[in-house]
Amino acid sequence: MELTINNVHPQYIADTGHSEIWGRTLSMMSPHHLHVIAPSGSGKTSFIHFVYGVRTDYSGTILIDGKDISKMGFEEKALLRQKRISIIFQDLKLFPGQTALENIEIKRKLSPFHDRDTITRMATQLGIADKLSQKTVTCSYGEQQRIAIIRALMQPFELLLLDEPFSHLDEDNRMKAMELIYEECEKRKAMMLLADLKKLSFLESEKSLRL
């Protein structure tokens, strides 16, 4: 997959002068990783949502293999989200009334990359195996974050979007989650686009751009 971000300006941010992303042209190919660093309110989530095709309130173009994502139809976008792009939302977007396992299964059954046993293995790796049968509304934010990570890794993808995925995890759990994410990206030879407030210690060697 090739991701091209071409002169993108959010319509609601007036000054994007110092950004290394807004108003610039950049291209990414599998299996590149890019770390987008920006303080709160500078448009990290907007940027991730633009790439995921959720929002279109920007000028410029975002191309997936040369195709403008803002011009894709509903079914085409659905297919893209099933097979090629996965995401961990900042606000997680879990079904509060469902258990952790049900939340993950809803995604896994849509386009299975792993079998059901992998859920337990990953949950054990991230320390939430005992939370799988618990409704997510009763889980802590950190636990929900790990459920959302596992959910995102259940499908095939060529691009993984992560929007502050470790904000409520301690250093030890961050490391475990990051290791798992790297391992899964490696399996798929996938790109990774991670947006966070600051450069994370274990991503020192990765390419990073300021928003």
Binding site: V54, F74, E75, A78, L79, L80, R81, Q82, F89, K93, F95, I106, K107, L110, S111, R151, Q155
Partner: peptide
Amino acid sequence: LLLLIGYSPG
């Protein structure tokens, strides 16, 4: 949310 995680509207 289902649409957001990739479920097809059709």
